[in-house]
Simulated assay, not measured.
Amino acid sequence: MVKNRQWRLISFPSGRPEASNWELVETEAPEVAPGHLLVKALYLDVAPYMRGRISPQPNYAAGVGLGEVMVGGAVGRVLESRSPGFAAGDLVVADFAFGWQEYAVLSPGDVRRIDPALAPLPYWLDLFGLNGLTAYFALFDAGAMKAGDTVLISAAAGSVGQIAGQLAKLAGCRAVAVTSSAEKAAWCREAGYDAVIDYRAAADLPAAVAEACPQGVDLFLDNTAGPIHDAAMQNLALDARVVVVGTASLADTFGAPDTGPRFLRQILVARATVCGFLFSDYAARHEAGRARLRRWYEAGRIHSKFDIAEGIASMPDAFLRLLTSRNLGKQLVRLEGD
């Protein structure tokens, strides 16, 4: 019987998560039920949304309970299929249903078959997965991005941000990055951003945004909340749009009231629109968005950087690396032997 190593949540973080919140256990790989697939992970996803899933506070999706396998996506290989639509050897991607483990039994509805000839495997958890579609729909739909906009993007060197900056340039916009180090700033410039703000080096962040966006911010893609959000709100252009995709800076304060500054006057004067964004709201259009992203990728107009850790044992450390902004590009874990 194949052994399956998996990470289970054993305690809820009281603040910032620690490796001790999870336990690595070894079990037997589950049997394949009729109509299902046994999949072996090749790459496991590491994503900011996972922080919200390990809080006992209410969230937009069900959380991970104590003793349960940590949620997450994966690219994997089908080892056994009891579904007529798949065969052993097929490569598939699961956006959420796989979990932090080496093997999973999945239903056909949990996975998509992928073509490694089109793009390397990591891209299927990035540009052609949650991150690419988030950037695409948040900008073009929720944010009504149009040519000539000044688009400000926080966490600009991360998984969503690096794609969003390139999409903004493809749309004929001025793309302005907010990131957290000189190394990340260099990657943002390489990815095509017109201006880059290192918020940790900025003595006055609102002034730095004003300098980088002299005509104001037409569209703000907010991946962080917190002080970066505050700086953007003080620099809104007329008819600005603010799309809240993530709140990474508030990740350790779930359930606490948001007592930061309020910007109702700025919203009023700019006649701005502020909205929240969830990837799942666009499920009916994911394939159309993915097809457009694929055309840009095949034309060589979008590329990604990856930060890849090795082995199932590295999952908690890779996740903490992401939460503390030490990753450069999309964070993934590659399993041993693959």
Rank of each mutant, 00 (worst) to 15 (best):
I10D: 00
S11L: 00
S14V: 12
S14M: 13
L24A: 01
E28R: 12
G35N: 01
V46S: 08
G52Q: 04
R53C: 03
P58I: 04
P58Y: 04
G63D: 04
G63M: 01
V64L: 04
V64Y: 10
M70Q: 07
G73Y: 14
G76I: 08
L79N: 06
L79G: 02
R82H: 08
F86E: 15
G89S: 07
A94M: 06
Q101L: 08
G109E: 11
P116K: 00
L118Q: 13
F128T: 04
T134D: 04
F137V: 10
A142L: 01
L152I: 08
A156I: 05
S159Y: 03
S159N: 08
G165W: 10
L170S: 10
R174D: 03
C188T: 02
I197P: 05
R200N: 13
D204F: 04
E211S: 05
E211V: 14
P214C: 03
G216W: 02
V217Y: 01
L219E: 05
T224I: 04
P227H: 08
A231W: 00
A231V: 02
Q234H: 05
D239A: 13
A240L: 07
R241G: 05
V244D: 02
A251Q: 12
F254L: 11
G255W: 14
T259H: 15
F263Q: 11
Q266K: 09
Q266C: 13
C275H: 03
Y282C: 15
Y282R: 15
A283H: 13
A283P: 09
A288S: 06
R292G: 11
L293C: 02
W296M: 11
S304L: 09
A309K: 14
G311Q: 11
G311I: 10
F319S: 12
L320I: 05
L320S: 04
S325Q: 12
L328W: 09
L328F: 10
L328T: 09
